[in-house]
Design a protein around this nucleic acid. Structure first.
Lengths: 163, 163
DNA sequence: CCCCCAACTTCGGATTCAGTCGCATCCAGG
DNA sequence: CCTGGATGCGACTGAATCCGAAGTTGGGGG
């Protein structure tokens, strides 16, 4: 029962370990997020209902989500950049502020010569400049930034766990 | 008609501009990749079949894909890093080699003090070291690398075009 | 003016989804 | 060893959804 208390923890404990069958289900849905439960069941050796229950649980637990992902260029976002940021003092408030910005697609705290790295998705050069210069660099605690404008996206997969 | 010939091009011409209705459909599927076509139709003002046809075309054209995305930590990948790379000569062969590696989730050519930036997803420290030290740094043309190990992922969305 | 193409709607049948039930298995405690 | 509770699975049923085909409309281009 003492071990039970650990179960309620959100993420990085041992309990939420996804078993091999659920991994196989995830792989199926990574190929096609709309694949019918029956087809998945046949592929992984489970009944349709069992697959449905597992998928529902995986979604509820936040282990995976099923979403549409788009090519930014074709939906009108022509400028992207990775921005490395150095911060003075506590990282959290800066990370929170960045996360609240719609243009920040990706915010991560890192070890190395940057404290934070942020991926920015913008419509055009003006939008990108405005975002970096007026909104990020003016955040309290931001000491310096370095931008890496995207020239060409060569690979982008969503296949974690498919190895 | 001369402009017509450009239509056959894969991606970055003007033609594949996604109209407002398709954008609305994409937004629906970004919220829930399995939402029924009828529900989407009601939301965007189209019949169920019309939505289905548009979704199929968007998928065929590669404008979007519907996939399951997972939290790397919960499926056994505990070490991630962004790696900035400087290259000697042509970037393409290096980018190709990186794209072929399963551990490289994300490969992009950039302007700035790195030529390439790559996101690496690994199971543990050994795997990460092996990947960076033995497989990336030994690629012909790679002049230098700089690694940014992830300490905490603060935000990760898939909402391009939902603004 | 007519033809053609693209996109939409309607429609019916096959499939799939969403609950619910009972059963087998597994563990903890008596 | 045996019992009680919880969990995960397969089977079943009605309702919703998916899917292909066919018919309709509207707008260029010849």
């Amino acid at each position: 029962m003492a071990s039970r208390s650990a179960d309620s923890r959100t993420g990085n404990g041992s309990p939420p370990a996804v078993d091999a069958v659920s991994l196989a289900i995830i792989e199926q849905l990574q190929e096609d997020g709309r694949r019918p439960y029956a087809a998945i069941g046949k592929a992984v050796g489970l009944s349709e209902a069992a697959v449905r229950q597992r998928v529902q649980k995986l979604l509820d637990q936040g282990v995976m989500q099923i979403v549409a992902v788009t090519d930014p260029l074709t939906v009108g976002f022509r400028r992207q950049a990775m921005v490395g940021i150095n911060v003075e003092g506590d990282l959290d408030p800066v990370a929170e502020a960045l996360s609240a910005m719609a243009e920040c697609e990706y915010v991560v705290m890192t070890a190395g010569s940057f404290d934070l790295m942020v991926e920015i998705v913008c419509e055009d050069d003006d939008h990108l400049l405005e975002t970096i210069n007026k909104r990020i660099r003016t955040l309290p605690g931001v000491r310096s930034t370095e931008s890496f404008v995207y020239l060409k996206l060569k690979k982008q997969t969503y296949m974690w766990g498919t190895r």
